[in-house]
Design a binder for these strands. Structure first.
Length: 399
RNA sequence: GGGGAGAUAGUCAAGUGGCCAACGACGGCAGACUGUAAAUCUGCUCCCUAUGGGUUCAGAGGUUCGACUCCUCUUCUCCCCA
């Protein structure tokens, strides 16, 4: 039992600091039923979670299974500073109103994975608001500038002569102080958070909490491009609230290589099962596309339903494999004759008439399945099915 | 507080008086090809009913027939010294 728990906890992790501590906590749970706390911080800078976040959430759910109480920390205070992590530019600072708005949708999404009964949602402005200038300075005395500059993203920005705001230096300290206040036993985060996570340990020691949190780091999930980390600002993400069709299609669009990362970090399949899938693909007995479809269905079903996942797969086959027309197409209408390029712009499937004309010249535009060759074409009264490229569709009714 | 360097399209980055809507790279879009939206190859990539017109190179002025390129001021950033 204990070993199984450890195996699940270790799965997919990038690094664990102080794993003895985790073993002790688990032992205490199995032998004496003692619970422990697992902290994870979330920045409510965007209202939507994506699969990159769920890697952490799934790990938290594992801890909940084995006696952990999750401290779901909303960085309500720190969001107003802007976490420098992974950024080569100073992040935009959020207002209080923005944050409050984001939190609700954020937590409801998180509870698709987490057990609500074993989760405490905490907001760090509750204690950081009261810290005051004196407390802040005391906190800051725990860290030297030299150490701060050792941090990879800071040193890179410094070297490339991009600005660093002093307030950004405070971020790791505040995040670490959260661990002091919450007396967390374990904190989990992405590998990019290493510095911040370790700060929690250092500060717990400095403030004599008598225990230092163990740190568990998960790898950063790559985005759809397979290179950069999944993030909303890069637009390479799969959102938890994405429609089933989108979600399915996005998973299927990842490269064969990246698929295995997704399997390891997102699938509920055991590592043994994944290994046998991989072997199957390598010896040619399994088609990689089938394996990827299975993953896409699993993930889609998790955030929607089995039914919707199945429909998404059928829809995808219909549109892409058989190049048929999708079921749901946005409909537009207009009064009087309209120029084709303008029509495409109005239907939101082209960004400008210039781009529309370019695509027409290249043969990328179809009306009712027929390629358009004349970029001066006028659409007269009637209904049209407009298509740009392979996957942008719109219906237009000209009155 | 003093001295120096810099700000160019989604990003990086050329261009130092006319040949500039601005090289190149990445990204993005389209086409071919495929198992998909992967890989590869090709084309395109400020806006505009367009063999033409309009607005751009941090911002505001100025010099000039003509400025992204020269001058002045402003804003922002980086470096060195205090």
């Amino acid at each position: 039992m204990m070993n199984e728990a450890l195996r699940e906890i270790n799965r997919g992790t990038a690094e664990i600091i102080d794993s003895e501590r985790i073993e002790k906590l688990l032992k205490a749970y199995f032998e004496e039923g003692k619970n422990y706390t697992v902290k994870a911080g979330f920045d409510p800078t965007a209202p939507d979670l994506h699969l990159g976040h769920t890697v952490l959430l799934q790990k938290l759910a594992i801890f909940q299974k084995y006696g952990g109480r999750v401290q779901f920390l909303i960085g309500s205070f720190t969001a107003m500073i802007g976490d420098p992590t992974g950024k080569n530019a100073t992040r935009k600072v959020l207002t209080k109103e923005d944050i409050v708005k984001n939190i609700e949708s954020y937590t409801t999404q998180a509870f698709k994975i987490l057990d609500k009964e074993k989760t405490d949602i905490v907001y760090n402005n509750e204690w950081l608001d009261d810290l005051g200038a004196a407390g802040m300075l005391q906190l800051a005395s725990n860290l030297t500038v030299a150490r701060m500059l050792e941090r990879d993203d800071f040193s890179k920005r410094y070297a490339s002569q991009t600005p660093i705001a002093v307030s950004e230096f405070m971020y790791p300290l505040l995040q670490g102080y959260d661990s002091v206040y919450l007396k967390s036993d374990i904190e989990i985060g992405g590998t990019d958070q290493k510095f911040n996570l370790l700060m929690g340990r250092q500060l717990q020691k400095a403030y004599e909490i008598k225990k230092q949190q163990a740190v568990l780091m998960m790898p950063i999930l790559e985005g759809l491009d397979g290179v950069n980390k999944m993030s909303k600002s890069l637009g390479n993400y799969i959102g938890v609230t994405d429609a089933p069709n989108d979600m399915f299609g996005k998973v299927l669009s990842v490269s064969d290589e990246l698929m295995w990362r997704f399997y390891e970090l997102l699938s509920a399949k055991t590592l043994d099962e994944i290994a046998s899938l991989k072997a199957g693909v390598e010896d040619g007995s399994l088609h990689p596309k089938k394996v990827k479809e299975a993953l896409a269905i699993e993930i889609t079903a998790r955030f929607h339903s089995d039914e919707e996942a199945k429909n998404a797969k059928e829809e995808f086959d219909k549109v892409h494999t058989k190049s048929q027309i999708p079921t749901d197409i946005d409909e537009f209408s207009c009064e009087g004759d309209i120029w084709i390029a303008k029509a495409l712009l109005d239907c939101n499937i082209e960004p400008s008439t210039s781009q529309a004309r370019r695509d027409i010249k290249q043969g990328g535009v179809k009306i009712n399945q027929e390629k358009v060759t004349d970029d001066k074409l006028q659409l007269t009264t009637g209904e049209y099915l407009l298509q740009v490229g392979k996957r942008k569709f719109a219906k237009l009714k000209v009155n």
